[in-house]
Design a protein around this nucleic acid. Structure first.
Lengths: 238, 238
DNA sequence: ATGATGGCTGAGTACTCACTCACTTTTCGC
DNA sequence: GCGAAAAGTGAGTGAGTACTCAGCCATCAT
């Protein structure tokens, strides 16, 4: 069973042998193993037995580290929300929003959403599952990043509306105009496996940036059109 | 128990008494009861016991009509895909696409997406759940409506690109620019309970129509900008 | 009225679930 | 070395789970 030579000679035991971990390491190991399962099968669809098997240890050990399945799930959400560079990304937005360079700000937001789905699709899938299944921790996590980001973008939109650059209308709705396209595209593309386009992510990001930007802005031809026809905003159009 | 008068006089027996149904009616009753449960808790999260309770009958009866839980689930998806006026809606799009009235077409698509989420949120929630859980029937159902609709819109976009009205770029990506905003907004708003805006649906639909349309179109100021700077498409911008 | 038909049910079955416990094996400060 | 603490496990437990079965009972053509 155990090797006949000196036990202290090799610092790490070869990976073929059973590897015993320290508490923190094993805990993280469980989190990593469970994330993928939870993200692909949901909370209810993932069994503790499957998690233990994926981690390569007994089910009993799992419950030594996490008293309940929900605790493990909560630990994942909490850790993912805390990391993932949310604070750093918010800071980037904040800096970008200072100097009103619309193209740069929109592009930054687009790339951030694209990158998140590309780098960590498991996390995004987990969040969507959590939102559907109605876990409180997921909504709490969304408020940690989603809410301040939303507020930040709304402030920016309002500012640009006052400058006469962005169109009139509920600023909250315009923020949706800013995030919906990359978010929906990434979701159908990476999470739901929809393969409707062969374009690269870079090409999509650049096209979407211009598309969103032209949607948000007031245009010269629109102003001309409006002044000519003096229409009440929405009724007519040909 | 039964009323003393003529048995054919009252078409429906009073709801207080135990109501015995004919086969077809009971079958539909199960489908209706199960739709809401599946849509709120998912396939795995919904128990046959809960469905039977919601229908007000025994669990055994459920299995007389649907040999397995998956069969019931499949029956729901199939029926929902068949109905829901998919064919009629496609025909509307097709008619709208004939005469190139961009505003009308975009508005029509927007309203269709909004309406679907407003009229039948359970169905949309079910489809999202099914897509996440990876049920084959869901993807098949999406192809029944989603694919032809997508192809139709892409053809329209290509036609308008040739006319020089819509911007250049992968037509498939532009179709996303058309549907992403209403779909993502409805999803977060109706399915995930996000309450970021107080605007009415009408106001949102009108604003979004203009936003999407201005995103897709080529604008006079953009043409001017391009001819002045002769930029290669995407590199520069301030 | 009556017997056949079909809607309907109570009481199961075999199995899986999250979670527990008594116990062994490894590590490590001294 | 040694003893205590930590890492790890096999074999469970009760509570669900989807699904079954033998048979009751309302309805209705005859």
């Amino acid at each position: 069973m155990h090797s006949p030579v000196v036990p202290a000679a090799s610092p790490q035991p070869p990976p073929t042998t059973r590897n015993r971990m320290k508490g923190d390491q094993r805990r993280q190991h469980f989190i990593d193993a469970a994330l993928h399962l939870f993200s692909t099968r949901g909370f209810r669809g993932t069994t503790t037995k499957a998690i233990a098997e994926a981690a390569g240890v007994s089910e009993a050990l799992l419950f030594r580290y996490f008293p309940t399945k929900a605790d493990l799930y909560g630990a994942i959400l909490e850790q993912k929300a805390r990391r993932a560079g949310f604070e750093a990304r918010l800071e980037t937005f904040r800096r970008e929003a200072k100097r009103p360079d619309d193209w740069a700000l929109v592009h930054q937001v687009l790339r951030a959403i694209f990158d998140s789905y590309e780098r960590d699709p498991d996390f995004e899938r987990l969040m969507l599952y959590a939102a559907l299944e109605g876990h409180e921790l997921a909504t709490a996590s969304r408020q940690l990043f989603g809410r301040p980001a939303f507020a930040l973008l709304r402030d920016y939109v309002e500012q640009r509306q006052r400058s006469g650059v962005f169109r009139e209308g509920d600023p909250s709705l315009l923020v949706f105009g800013l995030v919906a396209l990359p978010a929906y595209f990434s979701m159908t593309h990476r999470l739901l496996g929809f393969a409707g386009s062969t374009s690269s992510d870079r090409a999509a990001a650049d096209l979407f940036t211009q598309l969103v930007l032209d949607g948000l802005r007031v245009h010269a031809d629109d102003l001309l059109d409006r002044s000519l026809k003096n229409r009440p905003g929405k009724a007519a159009r040909g």
